[in-house]
């Protein structure tokens, strides 16, 4: 049974998601920030976590974006194979929603059209859109705008099979240490292990959209997530990089089969403004 979905519905929802994500952090993130403040041992760290809590409140009440870097618009679009999209080409529909959302929501336009000549496109398009075909008759859109303070500190490591799990741990800790205060800690750390060069990066990015507080369904991966969270928080970088035991709120790791010769690891660092909105259409 084929279901028709007009792309105007996608555009309208994308517009709303852009505005929602940039003003209201999801409940899982708000909860994680609150728990961090209760656990933080540094006085300055607690003060900064208190300011970040105030910041979230002001953002929602006064409709001022949580962060001025309202990000490059990243979408994961999971399209049911029994959906027939009518209207515009889906990428045009998503970009039109971004254009409207960033304009009507007073969001910053942070995209330049050419990476070398760097002229601002003026409407925050184009978005980065990852489409996949899934079973079913629905379209699931996940929107995760990404600021570049943290994106700039993200890394890919093409490890050797002999590096093993210890190599993976070193890679994650290296990326977080190098990020230091630049990526606006407390962080959420997304990790992709396996696949190919680009696959592990996409896994890492998508891992950031998982609700904070959930763990991997693979037992050894869930253990690794907890171990790395403890190790990262033992680094002492702290809120704002000014010291403390809250350097990360969560570590999310996803894995994928890989080649006999390789062990790719991507570490996508996100700041505490880890925005994600999911809608099923």
């Amino acid at each position: 049974m084929i279901r028709e979905l007009h792309t105007d519905i996608i555009t309208e929802n994308v517009k709303e998601m852009c505005i929602e994500a940039n003003h209201f952090l999801s409940p899982d993130m708000v909860q994680a920030m609150k728990q961090a403040k209760d656990r933080e041992e540094s006085g300055l760290g607690r003060k900064i976590l208190g300011q970040l809590a105030d910041n979230l409140k002001i953002a929602g009440e006064e409709m001022i974006p949580i962060c001025q870097d309202t990000g490059m618009a990243v979408f994961f679009a999971e399209i049911g194979q029994d959906v027939h999209l009518v209207g515009n080409y889906i990428e045009d529909a998503v970009n039109e929603g971004v254009r409207q959302g960033y304009e009507e929501g007073y969001l910053r336009k942070s995209v330049v059209g050419d990476p070398i000549f760097r002229e601002n496109t003026g409407d925050n398009t184009p978005a980065v859109i990852h489409c996949s075909i899934v079973p079913g008759t629905k379209v699931k859109l996940t929107f995760a705008p990404k600021g570049f303070g943290s994106e700039n500190m993200s890394r890919i490591f093409m490890l050797k099979p002999a590096d093993g799990i210890e190599g993976v741990k070193d890679a994650i800790l290296t990326a977080v240490k190098d990020a230091g205060p630049n990526a606006c800690p407390p962080l959420v750390v997304g990790v992709g292990i396996g696949g190919t060069f680009e696959k592990c990066a996409i896994l890492a990015k998508k891992a950031l959209t998982r609700p904070v507080g959930t763990c991997s369904s693979v037992p050894y991966v869930a253990e690794l997530e907890q171990e790395m969270l403890d190790k990262i928080n033992a680094l002492g970088i702290g809120p704002g990089g000014l010291g403390g035991n809250t350097t990360a709120l969560a570590v999310h790791i996803d894995t994928y089969p890989t080649h006999i010769a390789g062990l790719p690891v991507a570490v996508n660092i996100c700041c505490h403004v880890n925005r994600h909105v999911v809608r099923e259409l």
Binding site: I48, Q51, D54, N55, I58, I64, I66, C67, Q68, V273
Partner: peptide, 8 residues
């Protein structure tokens, strides 16, 4: 340093 991510 000002607090990163406290733009509002």
């Amino acid at each position: 340093a000002a607090v990163g991510g406290a733009g509002a």
